[in-house]
């Protein structure tokens, strides 16, 4: 039984970085064996177990998955889209990384 002193109030909870709505979690689902887990959306939950159960109810009502990953959104670090230009620029001028860069005769087979 939860004792009265254990009752969580809003200010205590916010110290954990969560409102009464629970933390935000990102959900990843493997749609079938052999495929990657793919991001499908997010949801609120107070802990990982609840996040997985909610993810099952929200994102797999029609057999969309065989495996679920959840991770607290605050633990995801993202690149900045404003820096996309300089971030990916080095890949731009390296066409020799693609097989089509190499000119070879048509009669060459199986390559």
């Amino acid at each position: 039984m939860i004792e009265a002193t254990n009752k969580v109030n809003a200010s205590e909870v916010s110290l954990l970085g969560e409102g009464l709505e629970g933390a935000l979690w990102e959900v990843f689902i493997r749609s079938k064996q052999g495929l990657d887990h793919k991001h499908v959306g997010s949801l609120h939950a107070t802990d990982a177990q609840m996040a997985i159960e909610n993810a099952r109810d929200v994102y797999t009502r029609r057999m969309e998955g065989v495996s679920i990953w959840v991770i607290k959104s605050e633990n995801i670090h993202a690149s900045n889209p404003d820096e996309a230009g300089s971030m990916y620029e080095p890949a731009n001028d390296k066409v020799y990384r693609h097989p089509t860069f190499y000119k070879l005769p048509d009669e060459l087979k199986h390559m």
Binding site: V8, L20, D47
Partner: peptide, 13 residues
């Protein structure tokens, strides 16, 4: 229910 879930999560953490 929300309060209980929150208390449970807090205690576990």
């Amino acid at each position: 229910v929300r309060e209980a879930a929150m208390a449970y999560a807090k205690r576990r953490s």
